[in-house]
Structures are given as structure tokens and as C-alpha cells.
Amino acid sequence: MLAKRIIPCLDVKDGQTVKGTNFLQLRQAGDPVELGKVYSQQGADELVFLDITASHEGRKTFTDMVQKVAAEVDIPFTVGGGISELRDVERMLNAGADKISINSAALRRPELIDEIVRHFGSQVCVVAIDAQEKNGVWTCFLNGGRIPTDRNLFDWAKEVNGRGAGEILFTSMNHDGVKQGFACEALARLASELTIPVIASGGAGRMEDFRDVFAQGHADAALAASVFHFGQISIPELKTYLRKEKINVRI
């Protein structure tokens, strides 16, 4: 049976990993290549590297890092941040990334999804969606959660699915950094409405949160950062716990 995936996310700025709380304050948490190797050895199923400064600064440092990760890490990894055209996708895939993730660029120009799928295949294309719930309505945001759009989460997710994306990485801005659990209700609705895998992001605080996101949120994968980076939860311990809770994970 296909295993549920545990995915540490590494936000990278100037070649170093950082993690924001509610997308704001940043804290230092190590060398991304070394951290990626450690996570792979611990049993992480995939890795995500997000270049959080890509839109403002040069991207060469990040491309160099992607090449090092590809040479040294033996599990699949996704890269995102500042990818806005096919040329960016090609550069990341040539550097050795398995998948790329797009966010704002897809909201601005949804045809980019079709183009990536046509040129490189569905499996390469992860569409990240940052959304916030207010009065029962989930709204998609641009630019790392800074700019609201008039897009509804569920409508946009269905469009992304229809355009051929391989996966959706959904971050609940209400839950991100709060460590009180994932947005299980919204996730369960996404799982029932979509035909592609959903990666849940935002809200991991305790091991129970991971159980709930799989059992109740029906997510295919769960992504987290600080609980792993700061050692609050170790991946081997988490996977042993999930197995005991009858969640199929790779050990």
C-alpha cells in the first residue's frame, strides 16, 4: 500500500535555512544540504526547499544548493520560490530537482501549469496554495501570504487539478506557525473533491496532529518545518507512533 509521506520543509535564504512563524519573523536553522542528508537518514520521505528570497535577490546561490542536494541526498526533493516561467523550471530540473513548486506565478498566470505539464510532465508540477479562512470563506493569497486575491481555495484547487498539476501543497495561513494542528476540515474537503494528492502544511505541533491530518484530513503527505528543525519531533519517533496508530508509513 502507498505510504503516507512525511516531508520536512526547508526555507532557504542566502544558502541557509530559516523558518518564519506566521510568515514573519525568521530564525536561523542550519545548512540545507546537511540538514537534508540528516532528514533522509532519519526516514523523511521527501524534502521541500523553498527559496524565500528568490523574488528579491540573485538565484545562483539557490541553484548551487540544488545541485549539491541532488548529488548528496538519496530521496526525492521539490524546490520552490520565485519560479515564474518555464526557464526557471528547466533550470531547477537541470540542477537535479525532482519536482518544482509554483505559487504566486500560477495565480497570476494559470496557463503556466499547463505549460509545465506539457513540457515536463504532471509529476514535476506541484502547485502550492496559501489560503486563509475568514467567516467560513477560504481565500488564496499571493507573495508568501502578503497579498489577498479574489480566488477561493476550493475553486482554485479544482482548476489546478484540471490543468494537470501533479500535486497540491496547501498551507493554511490560520494554522501555520501556531502548532495547534492542521486544517483537517478543509483538507478533507480537498481530498474528496480532487483527483491528485494533497500535501498538508501549516499547524504541526504534536505527533497527534500528524495522525489527525492523515486519518481525518485524508492528506497524502504532511509537511512541517520547525517541529523537525528544532527537534520537538523526531522523524523516527513520529513514524513509529504513526505505525502504532495504524497509519501506513515507510519505516
Binding site: A3, R5, G166, I196, P197, A221
Partner: peptide, 16 residues
């Protein structure tokens, strides 16, 4: 060919 809703294509991820 998917048989039920959970059968997503491509088959992607870790399997035994």
C-alpha cells in the same frame, strides 16, 4: 485505470 476515487494517477510515492 483508476477503480475508486483514492486511486490517483500517477502512482507516486513510497510503496512496498
Amino acid at each position: 485505470v483508476p477503480v475508486k476515487h483514492e486511486d490517483k494517477i500517477p502512482h507516486m510515492g513510497w510503496n512496498s
